[in-house]
Every structure is written in structure tokens, then in C-alpha cells.
Design a protein around this nucleic acid. Sequence first.
DNA 1: AGCCAGTCTGGAATCGTTTCCAGAACATTG
DNA 2: CAATGTTCTGGAAACGATTCCAGACTGGCT
Lengths: 334, 334
Amino acid sequence: MIKGPAVAVTIKDVARLAGVSQSSVCRALADPARVRPETRDRVERAAHELDYHPNRVARSLITGRTLNIGVVLPDLANPFFPSVVKAIQTRARGFDYAVFLSDTDEDPALEVPAIRALAEQVDGFLLCSPRAADEELRSNAREKPIVVLNRRVTPFPSVTADSADGMRQAVAHLHALGHRSVAYVAGPRTSWSNRDRLRGLRAATAARGMDLVEAGNVAPTVDGGAAAADLVLATPATAVLAYNDLTALGLIQRFHARGVDVPGRISVVGFDDIHLAALVVPPLTTVAIAKEQIGRAGVDLLLASMAGRDSTGTARRVLPTQLIVRGSTGPAPV
Amino acid sequence: MIKGPAVAVTIKDVARLAGVSQSSVCRALADPARVRPETRDRVERAAHELDYHPNRVARSLITGRTLNIGVVLPDLANPFFPSVVKAIQTRARGFDYAVFLSDTDEDPALEVPAIRALAEQVDGFLLCSPRAADEELRSNAREKPIVVLNRRVTPFPSVTADSADGMRQAVAHLHALGHRSVAYVAGPRTSWSNRDRLRGLRAATAARGMDLVEAGNVAPTVDGGAAAADLVLATPATAVLAYNDLTALGLIQRFHARGVDVPGRISVVGFDDIHLAALVVPPLTTVAIAKEQIGRAGVDLLLASMAGRDSTGTARRVLPTQLIVRGSTGPAPV
DNA sequence: AGCCAGTCTGGAATCGTTTCCAGAACATTG
DNA sequence: CAATGTTCTGGAAACGATTCCAGACTGGCT
């Protein structure tokens, strides 16, 4: 049987049982050194007997700290994000923080409202790949510390992947395989990492005198990739880089449906290295990002930002990327 | 430029600007019918001008309602859960609820602490596929309403999938293809849905006089499935059903690595119909669960449970399952 | 005009905690 | 012994909202 009472026990109950004032109970529990040992014992015994736990809501009202962090991301259905969120959650738990999750469904207009809705209940935000304009995001800067993941927005601390280097690796790989013309299937126009990847790709292809065909912007999903496949085939490109793995998988799926050989006719490279990239046939060559590290680093930066009372730190962590070569890339057709 | 003030605007500021009392501001915003139209206008104008939003923390202190719900799940890396969470979040947002997320990393011992940690800050819980013992879960029943997803735990309301029927469909499909001996690769022993699926499978095979080989319990992951593949091949089974899609993908992956033809030598059936089941080669035949519906129904049940002040309702929603036939199943080898 | 019912409003109490402030008790020092 | 400091404590004021209560005003009715 359960003995716990239906109604919560408050600090007053403890004070009464211990025969001291509320203030002393509070002090005894928050900072035992500030009360006499005897008082401390009495309070602790009473608190333990009643199974008292301070009400976080009431506490946060006066201290202003909630021990919660808010995570805002565009689409949980993209396997990239669950990995990051999982790492965030695990890390946060280690510091006794709980996590609010808000999925904005790839709608930039939902991001600021999501932040506003959570603002009072969290001590800070982790914005994963936010789609809203810099200016909009900055408009929340005064309220709570913000750390941005997968994007750089002045003046917030950020954690990003070194896309340029990843693209360099991918292009070097394709070049070595004899490819001279590559296509890029871009993600959302509002995505910073899309622009970042494209920038890196342009630099990398230019450096090797390769031809780059930009095949348009699509949704960062399997369907988006599938929709771009035929466009890509209509270009002279012998290899295609996709904004992310989902898009790449969509490309492969459509190529497969049309009987186009991968990598015989065309090579495919993804980005992110989601779990299932290794499972498709052919397994996907992709640029891996340290997703867990992004989550962890984000929490660490946010905690530092909160502790320093400085929401506009200039900390910028750039994590390395690594090309994972699998079966979806091969020699260019002759 | 940002005009928002650093410090939050409170109800007092609105009252001052509107030239009325706090009480009137509160009434005007909470229930416009309770104040004179003119007062309402003044308040609304002032609130709008100051961009005032009531502080949820302060409100919850007095009303006892937080407008948050807690979601506890075993592993966000399993694509099944993000789908459910996304649906939960979307549905909850519609009712102005925010979502706390806690990933317990498949560790049953973390579930109750996760619930306790969130208890004060939420109005109720959605437990997705909880792994902890019934008794442990029940020990939280007094505190806050709980709705269980993918499992039945008296006395909580629950939302489950009709696994038995799904298994019936899968077995009928395999039987029609000529299979007479099938294997089952089970998930975690502590998983209710694993037991539920196994029960359904036993009934279905028995009903058709088919042979069922139980190939042991594995982690509900790709690696778990891969680990069981060789065991399955050592049995006389010509088809294998997996606890979930990840396990099935692991099986296929290992079969592929060993040069075993799917479905030529052996057919594979998954469970859940995660997004990527359709993308592997061969695409996975699987029993689809309405993941979004589970999330939505869970929220609805929880809200009802909270409104009714009755955390131990007996509502049990069982959602239909549907076999999706793809390329991983074929005629039994002769 | 006088009375009553009804509408609308402001002040104050409240939720559970932390923190400020002032005073009590005790010890220390010249 | 007086003066000063230190330690510890309880009362009360916050935090920002909601809600109770009583009073002010309106209007309708006799």
C-alpha cells in the first residue's frame, strides 16, 4: 500500500514539526552551515519524516531559476535531432536540469512563439538548427541565455560542425574517384547549415576546378530527395551531394525505382551520418557529424552562459566532421 | 533594434498603464465577460502595448495547474518514439500545454526517479513503453494522472496497438506464401509490448498449425537484430518476425552480409513501420502502428483524466494495426 | 425617493518558497 | 563591566499571478 499523502507537504509542516520557523527550515536545508547543528538535525529529521521536497515552482518564482532548459528544434522526425536531444537530455540530467522539448515542424514562424511560451519556465534555451531570421532570434536575447546549435547567430554562443572541411573531404573523395561534375541538392533556403554546406562545397569544387550544378532547394526529407532525383539525372553530374542523409536516401530510393545504378551511373553522398545511413543498399557514403558531442557541448555552453549571467558570450565551438565512405560512391562512369 | 525590456512585464505594469487594478486585468484577460467592455478594451490595449504574457510559474503556484505534461520514454534513438513524441507535442501545443521530455535510456531504474523529478512541474504524465514493474509505476498513482502508452498497467488509462491482430495479419500473409515454420526474435523481457506481441504470435501460429521458433531476447536495436540473425538461420524457420523494425533491419543487414537472400532464403517481418522501413533494400514488410494516433490519443486521455480529477480511469484505447507488405517477404523456399 | 438586485471594481489574502531585516543570545575584548 | 562583535533566529516582505470579499455604482421597480 501507498502511504504518500495526496496533498503535498510544505515547508510550514516541516517547521511546525521541527518547532522552528520557516526561515530556519529553509536555511537548514539550503545551506546547513548557516544554522546551529542542533537546529539542523531537528529540521532534517522532520523533513525526512514527512518526506518533504521543496516545491520547485514556488522556489523558482522567487529565485528566478527553474532548473529547466528549453530545446527547440524543427523536426523530430529527422533522425538527426533525436540523437542530439538524447545527448542533451542525458547531459542535462547530470546537472539536475530537466528538458522542455518543442518541435516547430519546420515552420520558422513557430519558433519565436515557442521560445516565448517557454521563456518563464526555463533558465535558457538550446535552439537546434533554428530556421527563423537572425533578427527574430535576437529579439529574445534579453530574456534568457540562448545557445544555438548547427548555426551561428551573433551574439549567441554556438556549436557547429565544420561543414567546409566535411565538404572538402567529400569532394576530395569524389575527385579521386574521377568525378569532375557534381550536383548539390540543397535543403531549406532558411537553413543556415544549408548555406554553410553550400559555401563549403563551392569552395571545395572551385579549388579542384570541378563543375558544380545546383539542383534546387527541397525539403530536408526523403520525399524532398526523391523529388530532386530526376532533376539531377538531367544534368551532366556523375555524383550528387545532398543537404542531409534523408535527402540522400530519397535520391537513392528514386534512382533505384528508375533502375539507375548507384554508384555505377551516379554516386551519392549524404550529410549527418544518421543511424540508418549504414543500413540502406547501397550503404550511404556521408559526412559524419558528432551529434552527441553537439548536444553535450550545447548544454555545457548554456550552463556556462547561465552561470556567467552573460547571454551573449562569444564562445563558438566548431566540431570536426568526418567523411564515412560506404557503398554509395564509386568511380565515375567512363 | 530591440525594444523589449530586460525585465519581464508583470500584471502590475499592465494595471498601472490601463489605470485599473490587478484584479481587473486578471479578469479581463482570463474571462472577458466578467468586466465592462470599456475596461476590457483598456486592459487589452495596455497588455498588447506592453506585450504582456501572464507568468505561468506564478499562475501555477496558485491554481495548482502547470499546463505542462511529462513524457517519459526508454530510448529516443528508436525512431518509433520521436514519431510518438512529435504527435504528442503537436497535440499538446493545441491545448496550450508544453512538454517535458525524459529519456531513460532503456534503464527501468531511471523511470520512477524521472517521474518524481518532474512531478511538481507537470499536470500529468505520458509514459511511453515504460519498462519498470507495474507496482513501481503504481506507486506514483496518487501524485499525478498518468496515461500509459504501448502497455497496459492497471489502473491507468492506456493506449495500445492491437498487436494480436497485427500478428494475425502477418502470420496469414506468411502462411499464404507457403511458410510453415516461423521464428520470433524477441525484444526486452521487461517490455510489455514484447510479451503482447509474442502472445498474439503464438495464438496466430497455433491457429494455423504453424511451427513457432522463439529465437531469444535481444536489445530492440539494429545490433540486437544482427546478433540474432545467425541463430535464426540455424533453425528450420523460413520466415522470421522481429520484435520491431530496428531488430528486423539488423536481421536483414546481417543476412545481407552473409549473402543470405531475403526473401529468397528467408522472409523478414518487422513491427512499427518506422519511416525508414520503406527505404532499405529489400523494403521491409512490417506491421504498422498508428504512431501519431497513439500520441494524440494519449494526450486526449491524459487531458480527460486531468479534467476528471480521476487519475485511475479505466479508459483503454486499442488502435488498429495494419500489415504493410513490401519486398522482404516472399514465397517460402521449396 | 427609496429599496433591492445585479454588475463591476479594488483591496487584500493566498499559493510555497527565499531572503531581508532586526533583534536575541552569547562570546570576546579592552 | 561596558562595549562591541558574532552567531543564530523568527517575523515579514517579497516573487506574480488568481480569487475571495466587500463596497460602489447602476438600473429597475414600487
